[in-house]
């Protein structure tokens, strides 16, 4: 991109000039302000109606003060506990991605999703669990998604995997995940948590499968990885993801 030495020289001169402004600005404290720009009407795009989401939506993961960036040091152990409870849900998102393969073979887009300007994700909610037929049993109305089954047989006994010990600004977090013989995440214990020694957050065997089934929307089946997921995650979710990754890598929850 910068092979032309003349252009490169010009670029470097501009770089130096911009850096000078940075260092000059750093010694001041006034943030830059300017009026917002006007936005002309868009054209080259496809728009869906409002994404079908859980009504009512679950509590925003960032509702607590603990969600601020790490430049703001933690002051209250309560904040840490609050964050931990929020990221419990976040962490489970990874579990869906990693564990739903065995149930996803028949999942296709529900009839309501047909059409280019339809909702892109029909999803259940934690507040109102889906008690009708789950997505997996919806009669296929379109060509099914790629549905390669798991290639390895899961082990016959539950497997316990320790996640990585992850440090965040509150302290270290390490979780221990238990997977059932079919690869389903059945339990998560917090081995190490900031600010509260010995605290253990239990997710019971009922809650996890329920959440799992809710996550089995037309769009969430059988993914290898998630883009955007870790923006809300701190130690708990990261440690849980590492445990799930370990389990998956060992064939417990083979995907695709």
């Amino acid at each position: 991109m910068d092979s032309d030495p003349l252009i490169r020289k010009q670029l470097d001169a501009e770089l130096a000039a911009r850096l000078q402004r940075v260092t000059a600005r750093t010694s001041r404290t006034t943030p830059p302000t300017a009026p917002p720009t006007n936005r002309p009407a868009p054209s080259a795009r496809t728009t869906s109606p409002r994404i079908a989401s859980s009504p009512p939506p679950p509590p925003p993961p960032g509702a607590g003060p603990a969600r601020k960036k790490r430049r703001h040091p933690a002051r209250h152990s309560r904040s840490a506990a609050l964050a931990l409870s929020f990221v419990t849900t976040t962490g489970l998102a990874y579990a869906f991605a990693a564990t739903n393969n065995s149930a996803s073979a028949t999942i296709t887009a529900p009839a309501g999703l047909v059409g280019s300007s339809q909702p892109v994700a029909a999803a259940a909610t934690t507040a109102a669990p889906n008690t009708t037929a789950p997505a997996a049993t919806t009669a296929p109305t379109t060509a099914p998604a790629t549905t390669a089954p798991a290639t390895t047989a899961p082990p016959a006994t539950p497997t316990v995997v320790n996640g990585a010990s992850v440090r965040n600004r509150y302290g270290n977090v390490q979780v221990q995940a238990t997977f059932a013989a079919d690869g389903t995440l059945t339990n998560v214990d917090v081995l190490e948590a900031p600010s509260r020694d010995g605290q253990s957050v239990q997710i019971n065997n009922y809650a996890v499968p329920r959440l799992n089934s809710e996550a089995l929307t037309a769009q969430s089946a059988n993914v290898n990885t998630i883009s955007g997921a870790t923006y809300t995650s701190i130690g708990y979710a990261q440690s849980l993801q590492s445990a799930i990754d370990v389990a998956r890598a060992n064939g417990l929850t083979a995907i695709s």
């Binding site: 989401s53 849900t89 489970l92 909610t125 969430s220 883009s227 923006y231």
Partner: peptide, 17 residues
């Protein structure tokens, strides 16, 4: 590969893949 794109309102839902 199947990459889930997170639903912004919910930590356990995907908007698309």
């Amino acid at each position: 590969w199947r990459v889930g794109i997170r639903h912004p309102e919910s930590t356990h839902e995907l908007a698309t893949v």
